[in-house]
């Protein structure tokens, strides 16, 4: 295994938190409201994750994301449970790929409930496919310095004599 004995790996206590225990269609049905409600946490986490490319560095941000998602779904359950259930049932059963287009009617009901009770708007259809601009307090990761290898052979000087090859090329030994 390439992970060294003394390399840092978070312990189980650091990693254990309450997970979002929901299946794909439910998450997909809630996606456009969830993305709006937890935009800051999500962007912070994804920025950390792509900047460092190291899951160990983004545990805290990841927990914030899961916590925000849990809060969001608790709110939905409290205020719009029936509408949401109707909507994700439609998303789950109307198409093979959980498309949004067959469920515009139930979606309208759910959107209205979310707007009235929780004041969370549905994001525009392409909002999360756009480039996201995120302001963060996290310091920018250090630029990787150009590596220097001490055992590199010394290069020829610019003005070194370069006479033509004495015996020609040895390519395939033919010419």
């Amino acid at each position: 295994m390439s992970i060294l004995e003394d390399a840092y790996l978070p312990t189980d206590e650091e990693l254990t938190t309450q997970e979002v225990n929901l299946s794909g269609p439910v998450l997909k049905a809630a996606a456009f409201h969830y993305g709006n409600a937890c935009l800051a946490e999500n962007n912070e986490f994804m920025l950390c994750r792509t900047e460092t490319n190291d899951p160990r560095a983004c545990i805290k941000e990841g927990k914030a994301v899961t916590n925000c998602a849990l809060n969001f779904f608790r709110q939905v359950k409290k205020s719009c449970s029936a509408e949401f259930m109707q909507y994700y049932n439609c998303i789950d059963k109307s198409s093979t790929d959980q498309a949004y287009s067959p469920c515009r009617k139930t979606q309208a009901v759910f959107d209205k409930c979310m707007k009235d009770n929780l004041n969370i708007e549905r994001a525009p259809f392409d909002y999360f496919a756009r480039v996201q601009v995120h302001k963060t307090n996290r310091p920018r990761p250090l630029e990787e310095p150009i590596p220097h290898y001490p055992n590199t052979p010394v290069a020829l000087p610019e003005d070194a004599p370069k006479p033509p090859a004495k015996y020609g090329s040895r390519y395939l030994g033919l010419w």
């Binding site: 790996l9 978070p10 990693l15 254990t16 938190t17 997970e19 979002v20 998450l27 997909k28 809630a30 996606a31 456009f32 969830y34 993305g35 937890c38 946490e41 999500n42 986490f45 994804m46 994750r49 899951p55 160990r56 983004c58 545990i59 941000e61 990841g62 927990k63 994301v65 899961t66 998602a69 790929d97 959980q98 498309a99 949004y100 287009s101 994001a123 259809f125 392409d126 909002y127 999360f128 496919a129």
Partner: peptide, 25 residues
């Protein structure tokens, strides 16, 4: 429709990646 599907997937990606990372570690 394709963009909408992608947008929905990207919106829930952080939860899935965060959960996966914890289990992976």
């Amino acid at each position: 429709e394709e963009i909408e599907a992608r947008s929905g997937r990207l919106a829930i990606q952080p939860i899935l990646v965060a959960e996966r990372d914890r289990e992976y570690l």
